[in-house]
Structures are given as structure tokens and as C-alpha cells.
Simulated assay, not measured.
Amino acid sequence: MISVKDLTSGDNFFLMAGPCVIEGEDMALRIAERVVTITNKLGIPYIFKGSYRKANRSRIDSFTGIGDEKALKILQKVGTTFGIPTVTDIHESAEAAMAANYVDVLQIPAFLCRQTDLLIAAAQTGKIVNIKKGQFLSPGAMSFAVQKVVDAGNPQVMITERGTTFGYTDLVVDYRGIPQMQEFGFPVIMDVTHSLQQPNQTSGVTGGLPQLIETIAKAAIAVGTDGLFIETHPEPSVAKSDGANMLQLDLLEGLLTRLVRIREAIK
């Protein structure tokens, strides 16, 4: 079983990357194969990311998934095929044990990071629990979410910064939060792509600023983040979820190469 120490014991940052949602087996395997090739080359520990279901949608007709069990089995196949850990998000406490049968890391969505029952259920699986910071919370307030998982008997915790609500349809990143949350004693991840969302657009479809992906990522590495979270897709324009702020897969290697150089420089 993977541990937090496995991800942070080296000199490099680690990466959580993949599509927003599992759209099908071929796509998931293709993305994973490409990212594995890149991260092996650059010496970056890698966790494949994919949501088995999207519960937080602006409109009722938005794509939510291909079926829970089908998507979870695809995540499991990605892990066994490439020998890599996988992560998916859960939305209700009853989902924790189910998802834990298929993946190595359980992710708590930002809007749900204060849900005590959900945090405890995730903790009790024994899996790593990655808690996304609520867009409505200060970095310091995340200590209470972390403590719930630890008090439930699971010290395998990570925290993800994903921007803070600013106005009605935008987010900002306060990089002071990264070292502040690292003081809790757990790794901090920068969610690069979700931090560039422009939620609650009048169309009911979330917008984004993907042209700033490199800016957000470079700044996060420069201030010493432990890991990066990047949603990527071969063709973001046709992705079934969050295409407006995803990184085109062909651009990933160049970006990570430049980020490794920054990491080396600050070390």
C-alpha cells in the first residue's frame, strides 16, 4: 500500500494527473501511458487521477459518468497495468469503502472538506486521504479537517490548495497558504487546473483560464509545494467535464520539464 512518505521521500515534487472524469477505458489507459512515460523520464512520483462520478455539476444535464462500478474498475486496471497508484474523489460517507476497493487515495472535494462523516469514513479505510481546501476557507482552517482524519486513526493525509472564491465567478490563489498548511506536518499539493476555473458562468458551464496553467504551476513549485494536481486530456475541447481549464496532454512533458528545473534551482 502506498504511503505519503513514498511520495515525498525524494528530491522531486509528485504529480496527480489525469482526466477530470473517467470517460472510457481506452482514453484512461492512453492518458496514463503517456504520463507514466513522462514522469518516469523526469523522476516524478505519479498518481493517476480520475473521478468515477461527478456529483457537483452546474446543470442537471451535465455529464456525470459512465457508471460507478465500470469507472472504478477502469481506475483499478490503470493501476495494475502501469504499476501506479490511483486517486478518485468521494462524495458521501457510504462511498468510501466502495471506492477504497479500487484505488489507493481517496480525495475529499473542496466543497465537502468540512463534512465530518465523510472525512471519518475516508480515514477508516486506511487509504491516503487527500483533502481539498474549501474555496471558502482560510489555509489555517484546514487544520481542523486534517485533525478529523488523524483523530479517526489515519495519519496518511495530504492537503490540496485549489484557489479561493473571489467575487462571483472567479478564484484567486494565495501562495502564502502553501507554507502555512505545510506547518501542519502534511504534504501540500497545488491544484493547478481547478484554481483556474471560472465557476457559475451564465451558461451553466464552468469556464477557465488554461493559458495560466504554467504560471500557477511555476509559482507553486517556487514556493515549495510538495505536489501538483493537473487535469489533462488529449483534446480538452471535447472533454466531458472541466475542459475549459484542463491542460492539453501534448503540452504536459514540456511543462513538467521546466518545473523540474525550477525545483532543482530552489533546492
Score class of each variant (00 low, 15 high):
residue 126 G to Y: 02
residue 121 A to Q: 03
residue 107 Q to F: 14
residue 110 A to I: 08
residue 126 G to P: 02
residue 113 C to H: 12
residue 115 Q to C: 10
residue 136 F to V: 00
residue 124 Q to R: 15
residue 120 I to V: 15
residue 105 V to N: 13
residue 124 Q to H: 07
residue 135 Q to K: 07
residue 116 T to R: 04
residue 103 V to H: 11
residue 132 K to A: 11
residue 103 V to S: 13
residue 138 S to W: 02
residue 114 R to T: 10
residue 139 P to K: 01
residue 130 N to C: 12
residue 119 L to I: 07
residue 118 L to E: 00
residue 119 L to F: 00
residue 118 L to A: 01
residue 101 N to L: 14
residue 103 V to F: 10
residue 111 F to L: 15
residue 99 A to M: 06
residue 133 K to G: 07
residue 110 A to W: 10
residue 130 N to G: 12
residue 119 L to H: 03
residue 139 P to S: 06
residue 129 V to R: 09
residue 133 K to F: 04
residue 132 K to R: 09
residue 135 Q to F: 08
residue 131 I to W: 09
residue 136 F to S: 00
residue 127 K to D: 01
residue 136 F to R: 04
residue 108 I to E: 07
residue 105 V to Q: 13
residue 110 A to C: 10
residue 124 Q to F: 03
residue 137 L to I: 01
residue 135 Q to D: 05
residue 115 Q to K: 15
residue 105 V to Y: 12
residue 114 R to F: 05
residue 122 A to K: 01
residue 132 K to P: 08
residue 137 L to M: 13
residue 138 S to F: 06
residue 100 A to Q: 06
residue 111 F to P: 10
residue 135 Q to G: 03
residue 121 A to T: 00
residue 134 G to A: 03
residue 130 N to W: 13
residue 138 S to I: 02
residue 126 G to K: 01
residue 107 Q to I: 14
residue 99 A to P: 08
residue 103 V to I: 13
residue 101 N to C: 14
residue 133 K to E: 03
residue 104 D to E: 15
residue 132 K to S: 10
residue 132 K to I: 08
residue 108 I to Y: 08
residue 120 I to F: 05
residue 104 D to W: 11
residue 106 L to T: 02
residue 112 L to E: 03
residue 133 K to R: 14
residue 104 D to L: 12
residue 108 I to F: 08
residue 112 L to G: 06
residue 134 G to P: 05
residue 138 S to M: 04
residue 111 F to V: 15
residue 102 Y to W: 10
residue 105 V to K: 12
residue 135 Q to T: 06
residue 100 A to N: 05
residue 135 Q to E: 12
residue 130 N to M: 12
residue 119 L to A: 01
residue 114 R to M: 06
residue 126 G to F: 06
residue 131 I to K: 09
residue 120 I to D: 01
residue 117 D to Y: 11
residue 138 S to E: 04
residue 104 D to S: 15
residue 127 K to M: 01
residue 132 K to Y: 09
residue 110 A to N: 13
residue 129 V to H: 08
residue 108 I to K: 07
residue 123 A to P: 03
residue 111 F to A: 15
residue 138 S to Y: 02
residue 114 R to C: 01
residue 135 Q to R: 00
residue 107 Q to N: 14
